[in-house]
Design a protein around this nucleic acid. Structure first.
Lengths: 158, 158
DNA sequence: TCATAATAGATGTATAGCACAACTATTGCT
DNA sequence: AGCAATAGTTGTGCTATACATCTATTATGA
């Protein structure tokens, strides 16, 4: 129970630090953007428009949490809520023009942070780390004891 | 701006998932323990008693945050606040007997989680990942743009 | 075809974690 | 002695989160 333990521990510490640091750097550059907002900007920029429930699924958060996050970002004009015509329950969240433009301004700041964080780490090691983190994430999502997304993953058990 | 970016992104997702999952598993076993409480139990168990300010430094959290966390754990009887006789401003936080005993009960649960998360990952890769995470953490702590612990790290600049 | 179930999302409400500012108590400095 | 520094605590407020519940809409099947 030691170095393994520590991976998850360092994941936590580093995650906490990163969130704090990126907010600080955005703030220093005059942008008041929370880590969640940044994550959603990034997700939408890279992956295109997404339904709230997709966002919830991807981020392992509750639907209501996504609703509030999107609320705030709609208020700030960063994203648009587009109703789906063929199924009027559905929404799609897309980056607005000003969301794109904000993203473009924040990206270099994030890049700077990444550069600082990754200093002295080889590409090979970085890639291994990335693969390990992805794998751990999907393992945990599968082995999920807690709520949501159980139907698909736990059918076998029932 | 891609796979590097993603390391920090996956750190965040995995961290969030892990926190949720460990609380769920503790809860399922009948223990109401928050991730922060667990982290402190672990820290004190492995590293021995520590001053609040040390804890704050290690975890990159504010002193006041540590005060509240300790408050709660003292209330629950998990840790003791020991005044330092030679410097009466100082405190030391140590695990109580019941804190030790709780730790012993939680450790196997945490181990189970770690086992699930680490499934199919080689020791080599795990160790590389651990080293990368540690290094990234200390890089960020050094390059800190935000508050605290500046005196030591930024003397050179002034 | 309609009644019931399922789905997508939003709201009401409550909680935890966090930190800034300000305060108290104590110690160090000169 | 007197002022600055340090350790910790309190007052306060905000953000992220989710559970329970609600509405609107679509799917199902008897």
């Amino acid at each position: 129970m030691n170095y393994e333990q520590q991976i998850l521990h360092w994941v936590n510490r580093l995650g906490f630090l990163t969130r704090k640091e990126i907010v600080a750097r955005f703030g220093a550059a005059g942008f008041e953007v929370s880590p969640e907002e940044w994550a959603l900007l990034l997700l939408l920029n890279e992956g295109g428009a997404k339904a709230p429930s997709e966002i919830a699924e991807i981020t392992s958060k509750d639907r209501t949490t996504v609703t509030r996050l999107v609320d705030g970002m709609v208020r700030k004009g960063l994203v648009n809520r587009i109703p789906n015509e063929s199924d009027r329950r559905r929404m799609v969240i897309e980056l607005s023009a000003s969301g794109h433009s904000l993203f473009a301004k924040l990206a270099p700041i994030a890049k700077g942070l990444i550069g600082d964080a990754m200093g002295g780490i080889s590409d090979d090691d970085a890639q291994i780390t990335l693969a390990v983190l992805k794998r751990m994430t999907s393992s945990l999502q599968g082995a999920d004891l807690s709520s949501s997304s159980k139907k698909e993953t736990q059918d076998a058990k029932l």
